[in-house]
Design a protein around this nucleic acid. Structure first.
Length: 430
RNA sequence: UCCUCGGUAGCUCAAUGGCAGAGCGGGUGGCUGUUAACCACUAGGUUGGGGGUUCGAAUCCCUCCCGAGGAGCCA
């Protein structure tokens, strides 16, 4: 008999097939018994009907507990009463294992309990939906870059020193020296961009910040394109195209999951390019007009980002930040040397920054000065300075945070649900 | 690191100085279309740890531990 995944059931109506999965829920009513099975690709209801109370299938059914594993054979039927529109009229059950009492019952649970049971929580419907969308999001990101001439260049996770010297890094041993877990692939990406033109890296990054908010993970995934000869305006356009492509793909292929999450898709459908483009100084002005007093030189916090997204109702592209609040490698504006050509994109609906990037300094002397001003050890940056000695060109890039983007797409309150096993402040179990 | 709130049955919570409870989950029985099914019965407790006040503490005080929300920090 043919083993079929639940997501493909619609192709097998009226056929005898086999499903392999786990018991999600049971309901019984004497002579008819219901069994909801999940197999990772979806959920389907099985029905067993008999006049005889001691029917062998009833005996097996009665032994089944939540999350018991089984093979289930039966005929696929279309039925309006069944969740999902299809159900299986069960002809045989092969029990693989009777599960012990499963901790996560179909009722309410607290976050702390669920996080301790993250390895089991992943089996729940909403968690499953979020992570199904995650795989679509990642595929969409890769397709976007692959289809637009970018070369995938993986950057190292073990690095000899800080990329920027701003964030706190995880330190580890590297034989007889110290090494640090990467907080960004960008600097290495600049080298590969000079070798391949258009590149991107996609990998995990690590920040040892003691951040305890719904927007922060200690370990998170970031995609970082870097383009030789590109200037600020070029990456504005690419970041818009990327975001629009991602939304399109998720809306096209993951509608069922968005429904499970009860995500109102209108705000996503309404995202259009070009996004509102505004400078840092204009943003400060707007915030002040809205009663949020801010001075030039202050960085936006979570409340400001929320307010900005309320003003525009679209993702917003903010540029021209004070040099003081940005990293050392940012290219200064010709007309305003106190400003840098940085780019942040804030997602709509209050989700805050999902993209950060900008144009990089290509002048060797200027870069050297900035490294000195930021008290960074020049020896560590010799290779990086080399990139400006041998055919230096203007170049730009940005990083997009996968989990923040996913939280926005799914309308998930907390970022911890957007990665299978989140690493959070002081929490690394399971 | 700081601020606020919390920790009672496997889970979610009630009991605010006087008998430690309910719903879910588990077990037993019933029911022909259930949708987190329902109905009946049943088992289940070191009230986070330690100390104190009191005739009496889940409840008040001290202390430690753990968690949540937020802030700061943070491309």
């Amino acid at each position: 008999m043919k083993w079929v995944y639940i997501e493909d059931l619609s192709k097998h109506v009226s056929q005898e097939i086999e499903i392999r999965g786990w018991v999600y829920n049971k309901r019984s009513s004497g002579k008819i018994r219901f069994l909801v099975i999940r197999d990772g690709t979806g959920y389907v209801q099985g029905t067993i009907y008999s006049e005889k109370k001691d029917h062998p299938l009833f005996q097996k059914y009665d032994r089944l507990t939540q999350e018991s594993s089984l093979h289930l054979k039966g005929k696929v039927k279309k039925d309006r009463r069944a969740p999902g529109g299809f159900e299986i009229s069960v002809s045989d059950i092969k029990i693989i294992q009777i599960s012990e009492d499963f901790p996560i019952t179909p009722k309410k649970h607290g976050v702390s309990f669920l996080m301790k049971n993250r390895h089991l929580w992943l089996r729940s419907r909403k968690q499953n939906a979020i992570l199904q969308i995650r795989t679509e999001l990642i595929k969409a990101i890769r397709d976007f870059f692959d289809n637009n001439g970018f070369r995938l260049m993986d950057t190292p996770i073990l690095t000899p020193s800080a990329c920027e010297g701003t964030t706190t890094l995880f330190e580890t041993e590297y034989f007889d020296q110290n090494a640090y877990l990467s907080q960004s692939g960008q600097l290495y990406n600049e080298a590969t961009a000079m070798a391949f033109g258009k590149v991107y890296c996609f990998g995990p990054t690590f920040r040892a910040e003691k951040s305890k908010t719904r927007r922060h993970l200690i370990e998170f995934w970031m995609v970082e394109p870097e383009i030789a000869f590109a200037q600020l305006d070029d990456i504005k356009k690419i970041s818009e195209d990327l975001i629009l492509y991602i939304i399109e793909r998720v809306l096209e292929n993951r509608k069922t999951e968005l429904e499970i999450l009860e995500r109102d898709i209108k705000p996503l459908e309404q995202v259009k390019k070009p996004f509102p483009r505004i400078t840092y100084e204009k943003t400060i002005e707007k915030l002040n007009n809205k009663g949020r007093s801010m001075k030039f030189g202050e960085d936006f916090g979570a409340p400001e980002e929320t307010l900005i997204s309320e003003i525009f109702k679209q993702p917003v592209c903010i540029t021209h930040f004070p040099a003081k609040i940005k990293a050392f490698y940012m290219q200064p504006d010709d007309k305003r040397p106190d400003l840098v050509l940085g780019l942040d994109v804030l997602a709509s609906e209050g989700y805050g920054e999902i993209i950060g990037g900008g144009q990089r300094i290509h002048d060797p002397e200027l870069l050297q000065t900035k490294i000195a001003e930021h008290n960074l050890p020049q020896e560590a940056y010799e290779w990086y300075l080399d990139l400006r000695k041998y055919g230096s060109v203007p170049h730009s890039g940005f990083g997009l945070g996968v989990e923040r983007t996913l939280a926005w797409l799914c309308n998930t309150k907390h970022i911890r649900e957007t990665i299978p096993f989140p690493r959070l402040l002081y929490k690394i179990y399971p």
